[in-house]
Simulated assay, not measured.
Amino acid sequence: MDPLLCSYRNCSERMRIVRCCGPGDFFLERVVFPFELLTFHCPPSTDVQIWARESAGVVLAEQLSADSMAMEESDTVPRPAWLPQIPIRAVGVKGNASSVCLQRG
């Protein structure tokens, strides 16, 4: 099973925590700063949780599947890593946070 290349953009003015729990002891947790784009690899059946700090404490702001956050991959020549990626559409938009699919090539 090939891992998915996923992305998440924090469109809020506060830090978010992205937590991924997948099959076979897969676990990934990252802090995403305001307006930062996080890209990561994970198994296809991974659950992705977005946590936010509110006045009542840390709350689960959004829950997505890795499949819905997957970036489109092209069979053409890959875009060099030093060039900026080009956003083509946002998916899973909820509140101020969204995941973004990026165009490659």
Rank of each mutant, 00 (worst) to 15 (best):
M1F: 15
L4Y: 03
V93F: 08
L4K: 05
V32P: 04
S98G: 11
L83V: 07
S45Y: 15
C21H: 14
G57D: 00
C11L: 15
Q103C: 12
S99D: 05
H41D: 15
S12E: 03
D67F: 11
E29S: 09
S74D: 13
E54T: 07
V93A: 06
V59M: 08
K94W: 15
I86P: 03
E29H: 10
V48A: 03
V77Q: 13
D67E: 07
L102H: 05
R19G: 11
P34R: 02
R30V: 07
S12W: 02
R30K: 11
S45C: 15
G57C: 01
E13S: 08
P80C: 01
I86Y: 06
L64V: 04
V48G: 01
L64F: 02
V58N: 04
C101I: 14
C101V: 10
Q63M: 08
A52W: 15
C21S: 08
V93N: 13
E29R: 06
Q85Y: 12
A90Q: 11
S12R: 04
R79D: 02
D2W: 10
P43E: 00
R30F: 11
P23I: 11
A52F: 09
I50P: 05
F27K: 13
A52T: 12
S99L: 08
L102T: 01
A70E: 05
M69G: 00
L38S: 00
W82H: 06
G24C: 10
N10F: 08
P23K: 13
N96T: 09
G105D: 14
W82G: 02
V77R: 11
G22D: 05
M1G: 15
V18I: 00
Y8S: 10
L28F: 09
I17V: 08
Q85C: 10
P3L: 09
G95V: 04
L60I: 03
S65C: 04
G95S: 02
L4H: 01
C11I: 09
I88R: 12
R53M: 10
F40C: 03
D67K: 15
F33M: 11
L60G: 02
S74Y: 08
M69D: 01
P87Q: 04
G22A: 03
G105K: 14
T76Y: 11
R9Y: 14
L83N: 10
E72D: 12
E29C: 03
V18H: 00
V18K: 00
E62T: 03
N96F: 15
S68A: 07
L28V: 01
I17Q: 05
K94S: 06
S7W: 05
F35M: 04
V93H: 05
V77C: 13
S98E: 11
D67R: 14
G92K: 03
P34I: 07
P87K: 01
I88E: 12
T76H: 07
S99H: 13
V91W: 06
S45E: 09
G92M: 09
D75I: 13
V32I: 00
N10R: 10
Q85E: 14
P44D: 03
D2R: 14
S98I: 12
W51Y: 01
P23A: 09
S68K: 08
